[in-house]
Simulated scan of single mutants.
Amino acid sequence: MTEIAHSPTDWVAHHTARYLASDGADGHLFNGYPTLLLTTLGRRSGVRRCTPLIYGRSGEDYLLVASNGGAAAHPAWYLNLLAEPRVGVQVLGDVFTARAVTAEQAAKPALWAEMVRVFPTYASYQRKADREIPVVVLTRSANSSR
C-alpha cells in the first residue's frame, strides 16, 4: 500500500492524525462541524493525499464543497479528484472507497442549500469567489465495506 501524505499545514496535519488515531472519536467534529477524511491521488505527483473536510449528506451519499475558503482557485484535492474520481473516505471508523463527481447543475441548488445549512460560512465564500464553487458528491463503491 502506498503511503499517504498529510498536509504540511500543522493544524491540519494534527487534526488528521487525531482523527486517524481515534477512528474519528477525536476529530470527527471540528469546531462543531462534521468532518471526514478524503484521500485523493495527486494528479501530477502520484502521491496519495489525505484531507479533512466538512461534509453533509444527501441520502446515502456524502457531500463536500470545494470552497478553498472562497479563493480564486479550486483546492488541490478537488483538482485531484477531477483527474482520478476514485477516492478513499473515512467517516468516524468507517473506511471505504467512493466515486467523487461534481454535482450536476440541476441538482446543485438543493445540495448547496444543504451544505450551507451544515456550514453557513460557505455562502460568504461563494460571494467573494470569482468562480462557481463546486459541490462534490461521494458515492460509496459497490464493493466497498460498510
Score class of each variant (00 low, 15 high):
Ser145Pro: 03
Thr2Lys: 03
Ala103Glu: 09
Tyr19Leu: 06
Val135Glu: 04
Met115Tyr: 09
Gly88Lys: 02
Leu82Ile: 11
Arg117Val: 14
Ala71Pro: 05
Ala98Ser: 01
Glu132Thr: 10
Asn143Gln: 09
His6Ser: 07
Pro85Cys: 02
Leu79Gly: 14
Val12Pro: 00
Asn31Glu: 15
Leu36Glu: 07
Thr51Cys: 00
His15Arg: 02
Ser67Trp: 05
His74Ser: 12
Asp10His: 02
Ala123Cys: 04
Val136Lys: 00
Glu104Ile: 09
Lys108Ser: 08
Glu84Ala: 03
Asp10Cys: 00
Gln90Lys: 08
Ala13Cys: 13
Lys128Gly: 13
Thr40Val: 04
Arg131Phe: 10
Ser124Tyr: 10
Glu104Met: 06
Arg43Met: 13
Pro75Lys: 05
Val12Phe: 08
Val87Ile: 14
Leu37Ala: 08
Val47Leu: 03
Ser124Leu: 14
Ala142Tyr: 01
Met1Pro: 09
Thr51Ser: 08
Ala113Pro: 00
Thr139His: 07
Glu132Pro: 05
Val87Gly: 04
Val89Met: 05
Ala72Gly: 09
Leu138Gln: 11
Arg140Trp: 12
Lys108Gly: 02
Ser45Asn: 03
Gly24Ala: 10
Leu82Gly: 04
Gly42Gln: 12
His15Val: 02
Lys108Ile: 07
Asp10Ser: 03
Val118Thr: 03
Gln105Ala: 15
Leu20Cys: 05
Ala13Phe: 10
Leu79Phe: 14
Leu63Cys: 09
Ser67Arg: 03
Asp10Ile: 03
Ala13Leu: 10
Asn31Ile: 08
Tyr55Glu: 15
Thr39Glu: 14
Ala103Arg: 04
Ile133Asp: 06
Ala110Cys: 08
Glu114Val: 06
Asn31Gln: 07
Gly46Leu: 05
Thr121Cys: 00
Arg18Thr: 06
Val137Arg: 05
Cys50Glu: 13
Pro75Trp: 12
Ala110Lys: 04
Val89Glu: 04
Gly59Glu: 12
Asp94Glu: 11
Ala76Lys: 04
Tyr55Pro: 10
Arg117Phe: 07
Glu114Ile: 03
Thr121Met: 03
Arg49Ser: 13
Arg48Met: 08
Asp23Leu: 06
Phe119Gly: 02
Val101Ala: 01
Ile4Tyr: 06
Arg18Ser: 11
